[in-house]
Design a protein around this nucleic acid. Structure first.
Lengths: 225, 225, 225, 225
DNA sequence: AATGAATGAGCTTTCATTCAT
DNA sequence: AATGAATGAAAGCTCATTCAT
């Protein structure tokens, strides 16, 4: 005998919505998109599989079906995030520009990309909390990123050969300097902004710092050591 | 360069002490020390109160007795971490140095502190993942850090007045530039090192980058905009 | 007097069933049955989820899976308890009886139901300790019980119209009078019995009081105010 | 070395306020007063020793010093509550009134006392949830209450002898009838009021029911069985 | 290939109480 | 007689994952 007032006795985990997408690839992308936001927002430990499932058109079970584990899902999210910046970077075609312009262009691109993709910045910060163990385990991430250094190397040798660059830096060092400033502005925006009472998102500040970073590095490269 | 008093920020060897310590202040410090390592290692969500208790000479119950909640313990760990860098910063006494030397000294100190305190760097990175909500809630952190900007401001105005600094930067911008490079090297050491196959811990690399960062910023300040 | 269908309100012998019951509806009912006894015995604060799990063929985890929280489980237990009395009340069909007989019948039914369901009485007493906040939050409970007053209202108007009832009471007042005596006998059985050294469970006492209550109220209704 | 920002690291349990009342009896009464409200509000299981300590001028430790355990404190609270109603009851001096007036007076007093002391009603309801085990264990409670029945017995025999009362009830039965209606109105005020959408606190309703109860019982006593 | 139902393990937190003077 | 500091035991609840088809 069924008691009508017991109708709202429902399992605590979010009711499954009918998937039936019949498009596995789309479903996977959907999950990856949502997982990207979840992990970027709360970290690997703080991110919830339930929360991801709830924001997806799928069920929690499907996440495990396609991705096997939370950690593996996270690793794929990370791979995809790294792929994003490098894919665009490749299209810059710096070779058609003179070294100084190319350098400035590279810095500005890096600045803009980080600024536009805080979730990428957060994911990388999170990955460092986990000692980069997923990056270490992923051939894909390492292969995706290797060309980035080649670009800098090539630019450096062009600039030195033409005499525009006066400083014979290692490519890693130049890359570090550029990345550091572009990354930190976004990764530490919240603590920095709170403590020093400024909004690093504000367009005026953003432009001022974009120019400063570009000028500082360009100046450094073009002054004799 | 020797950094004074680093030893008491985090004792290198946690002295073993009797369980019923009868010394509440020491017990609290013990918990804070262990919690600092735990949260720095695994984040707020990933850190385990059980793990902290296990590494302490106390019980889990005592952690709650002294600190009320995991989150509050984390917040105090964070406060203490911020206090560490500022306390030492205050002892630099930059005023007795000429502006250029003072600037170089400030950068080198910042570099060395971050290099020597990766757990501080990690805690700040973690706090940013949590949108700095604990920093926002903590008057102590904000008050601890405010002087840091004053130091930069004062240095800037001295340098400009004396004509050594040619560039009229905002203090926040200069501070950002210094922090970014010192912070990123440590915070992103793992992903950066893995992807670009280098060990940012290696003394030679460390020294080279220390000089590069110092030179780049000093040069920037002393060249006309 | 025989009360129909009491058996399924609370099964007298909880049938033992396999752990992985594969019958969610039965498992839920099982949990509700056990929880009813636990909360009736120890209250909401005093009832233990662990104890409920132990007496069920399920685990604590399943209780949370089906009912989300201890408090929600309690609320549903309460709803079900209220549903029990009203479902039977509905089957009394007082209209076919003359007003006096109907009134006596209603009182006797109320008396018998409370006498047979001390766990219902205890749950309502407990809910009052909690300021009826779960009843206030439950549309189901309020809707389940509303008809009860209609029954009294209808009986009252029939009796007055036919001239048998001489007293124009409010339905709430008559209902209160009936409920009070039937409820108190059970709710306060333990303190009353102890202090005045009598056993309110004893059949002879029970019958005597059943008649007294019925007579007192019937007499009151049929005497001119 | 003391870190100033750690000053707010305080034990989680409420800081002890200096007692120094130097008046043990007053302190005990203070604790009993507060405990009465706490237990009446939340029950024995739901009442918190911490909450009692916080609202007292003493510390939690003192509660244990004077009362040994939470349960013992509760038992004493209960004893005191029972003593309250009987102390006043004794002052009624019903003998100077004719039996009918005396009966009406007794009912009205009982009604008024319950209405004015909901915490007493709640404590008794709570004690019944605990199967009156503290009442059973307390000689004091039983001795305090025994006279109450004597009063009814004496009134009954006076009324019967004088011929005013026509019904030869047992004293327990009359007492039960009176208590039931006076108690239920208060004990079940919350559920009853919510379900039947009325406020049993409202003065008009209160007066109407007071008269109804008195009339019903008086009428019953004075009509031949 | 796809999925609804179920769950073991472990989490943070609470609470009455006792230790030690 | 009086008390500040400490605590064992267990409570409610959460989470990623697997069972079973």
């Amino acid at each position: 005998m069924k008691l009508p007032e017991l109708a709202n006795v429902l399992p605590s985990e979010p009711a499954s919505r009918p998937t039936r997408s019949r498009d596995p690839e789309r479903t996977k992308q959907d999950i990856l998109d949502v997982a990207t936001m979840e992990f970027a927002a709360h970290g690997l430990a703080g991110g919830r599989v339930d929360a991801i499932a709830a924001k997806t058109q799928t069920t929690k079970r499907m996440i495990y079906y396609y991705f096997e584990s939370k950690e593996n899902l996270y690793a794929l999210v990370l791979e995809r995030a790294y792929a994003g910046i490098r894919r665009i970077e490749e299209q810059m075609d710096l070779d058609r520009l003179d070294p100084e312009t190319a350098l400035r262009r590279l810095i500005e691109f890096t600045f803009d990309y980080h600024d536009a993709h805080p979730e990428f910045v957060r994911l990388v910060a999170i990955e460092n909390i986990h000692n980069a163990e997923h990056v270490k385990a992923s051939l894909a991430v390492r292969e995706t990123n290797r060309p980035a250094l080649k670009v800098v190397e090539h630019l450096l040798s062009r600039g030195l050969k033409s005499g525009v660059f006066k400083r014979d830096l290692e490519a890693v060092d130049l890359h570090l300097m550029i990345s550091a400033m572009c990354f930190y502005r976004v990764s530490n925006r919240q603590t920095f902004g709170t403590i020093f009472e400024c909004n690093l998102n504000e367009p005026k500040l953003r432009e001022r710092q974009r120019r400063m970073i570009t000028d500082a590095i360009a100046l450094f490269m073009m002054s004799p050591g």
